[in-house]
């Protein structure tokens, strides 16, 4: 079975992100380029938003 691939732009870096018929609303996807975690905001049409980030644990 083939599913149609839809290319959506990463909201952070503009890279191509591929979604298809198996993608679910609310699914979390990592952008291959910037590593950002993206949330599938809607599936018809596909829209992405940056997923909420956990508390920062990074320092000097």
């Amino acid at each position: 079975m083939t599913t149609t691939v839809t290319v959506v732009e990463c909201v952070v870096c503009g890279a191509d992100v591929e979604l298809d018929g198996t993608t679910l609303q609310g699914e979390l996807i990592d952008c291959d380029d910037c590593g950002c975690e993206l949330e599938v905001a809607s599936v018809a049409p596909f829209t992405l938003r940056e997923a909420p980030q956990e508390a920062e644990d990074w320092g000097q």
């Binding site: 870096c13 503009g14 890279a15 380029d33 990074w58």
Partner: peptide, 28 residues
């Protein structure tokens, strides 16, 4: 925007074997 700058760097180095764009929101 940062996204605009990403595109400038990707356009320059997207196919380069030895230049990597390193800019991540998490990780060490």
């Amino acid at each position: 925007t940062e996204k605009d700058i990403w595109k400038i760097y990707r356009d320059a180095y997207g196919n380069e074997p030895f230049v990597r764009i390193v800019k991540e929101r998490d990780g060490l």
